Amino acid sequence: MKSLPPLGDDAVVRLSRQGGVAAIHTLTRPREIAFAQCNIDQRTRICSVLEGCLAIEDPASGRGDQRFYEIEVCYRIGEQDDRMVMKVPEDRAPGELVHLWDKGEVL
């Protein structure tokens, strides 16, 4: 299983909802959360949500018009930029992830 890399001030989390019968950009409602703008409690809760998603992520999500949440985590290790992408089926998504995508805020 994948593990979450250390996320510092430079980390950015991008969330969107994908899939379905018709791909309509306005329905994806992409969100971007910059760790530099979050306090330590918010970062801890976001990391907790991301770690929970690692256990249920499925790279095959989106087949058969299934909706899924795409989570892109952009981070830096030393001098190198890196990223991790997860696909979480909508029907298995934790409530905290749905809230984060829907409201753009941490519970």
Rank of each mutant, 00 (worst) to 15 (best):
M1T: 01
M1L: 02
K2D: 10
K2V: 10
S3L: 06
S3V: 05
L4C: 14
L4Q: 09
P5F: 12
P6V: 15
D9W: 00
D10P: 08
D10Y: 10
V12W: 03
V12E: 08
V12A: 12
V12D: 14
V12T: 13
V13L: 11
R14F: 04
L15E: 00
L15F: 06
S16T: 10
S16A: 12
S16H: 05
Q18S: 09
G20M: 07
G20Y: 11
G20T: 08
A22D: 13
A22F: 13
A23R: 15
A23K: 15
I24A: 14
I24T: 15
H25E: 09
H25K: 15
T26Y: 14
T26D: 15
T26S: 15
L27W: 07
R29Q: 07
P30M: 08
P30A: 06
R31Q: 15
E32L: 10
A34R: 04
A34K: 05
F35P: 00
Q37D: 13
C38K: 01
N39H: 01
N39L: 00
I40G: 01
D41A: 04
Q42Y: 00
R43N: 00
T44C: 07
T44P: 02
I46N: 00
C47E: 10
V49T: 10
V49A: 02
V49H: 04
E51H: 13
E51L: 06
E51T: 13
C53D: 09
C53P: 02
C53W: 04
L54R: 02
L54A: 01
A55L: 05
I56C: 02
I56D: 01
E57Y: 04
A60V: 10
S61H: 08
S61W: 07
S61A: 15
G62K: 11
R63S: 12
G64P: 03
Q66R: 12
Q66V: 10
Q66K: 09
R67A: 11
R67N: 14
F68I: 03
F68A: 05
Y69H: 13
Y69P: 06
Y69R: 07
E70S: 15
Y75A: 07
R76L: 09
R76D: 10
R76W: 09
R76F: 06
I77D: 05
E79V: 08
D81A: 15
R83K: 14
R83L: 13
V85S: 04
M86K: 03
K87Q: 08
K87T: 02
V88C: 05
P89Q: 08
P89K: 08
P89D: 11
D91L: 14
D91S: 15
R92G: 04
R92Q: 06
E96Q: 14
E96D: 10
L97D: 03
L97I: 11
V98L: 06
H99I: 03
W101C: 01
W101A: 01
D102V: 06
D102I: 02
G104D: 01
G104K: 03
V106F: 00
L107V: 08
L107T: 13
